[in-house]
Nucleic acid binder design. Sequence first.
DNA 1: ATCCAGGCATGCA
DNA 2: TGCATGCCTGGA
Length: 281
Amino acid sequence: MITLEFNEKYSLMHTFECGQIFRFKTFDDGTTYYGTLENHPIKAYQEDDHSIQIETHDDKVVKPLVNRFFRTDDDYLSMKKAVQIDDLMRTIVETTDGMHLLLQPKFECMIAYLLSQCSNIPRITSNLEYLAENFGKKLEFDGKTLYTFPTRQDLIHLDEMDFRQMGFGYRAKYIDYFIHNYPDFLDDEVRDSALFNKQLKSLYGIGQKVADCIQLFAFGDLYLFPVDTWMMKFMKKYYYRGGKKNPVKEIRELGQELFGKWAGYAEELIFFYARCFDSTL
DNA sequence: ATCCAGGCATGCA
DNA sequence: TGCATGCCTGGA
């Protein structure tokens, strides 16, 4: 048993349901979630508002992984203060209270966001689960059957046609290309954030939005403000006052101006709120 | 049924 | 640099 304690509220449900991650599942309406990290089974349980408990098969090995994954070192209270720039943002912070960003395993995260374009959460989830169930490792844990996400080596024998048959559609060629042309820069010890963003965008199938999501969710660059259709609708309605038809670039920059180094947190709080709590969008 | 999703590459001004 | 178009496919 591993206990993670926080000064602030930590909501497992908000964290796993906000839309940043796809393959953690609850069977009890949001108190307990099951998933995997690397080759380890993870059961996460909401103990109280400020602490969660993790069960796995090897606490000693998994402890550093969950600390990293659940971002236990984030200065969440400073983030909340910084992001509450007006009444609307105060409402959003209150509504989504306890939602934390995660630091996701990078290979799975990259596949997930390559699959995300013109798709939706249920479909992305089922695409990822198909990969896990067919090419990952099966783990029995706490009465549940869990599947690890496959490594690149586990998928290297597959090609575009295989991925098309899995229902990936035109995204199949991006997955195929990524797996067979895995770039060295992803494993560089030292990263320059701006350069890294360009390097990601140079990959086949990765544009500004997917690059920002990968860099935010799997590499932890919290200042990024990914702009998808939800963010466009939200920002046009509440903050963006330009007149351009397709102001993705300006809205991305506006997000960074408004929320600074916490723009990534702001984006995810807004995304969750826009999708689940604002019926006018 | 047509239309559109959590975008991107491509071709063209 | 900016904009239009096609892309797989499942769900409304």
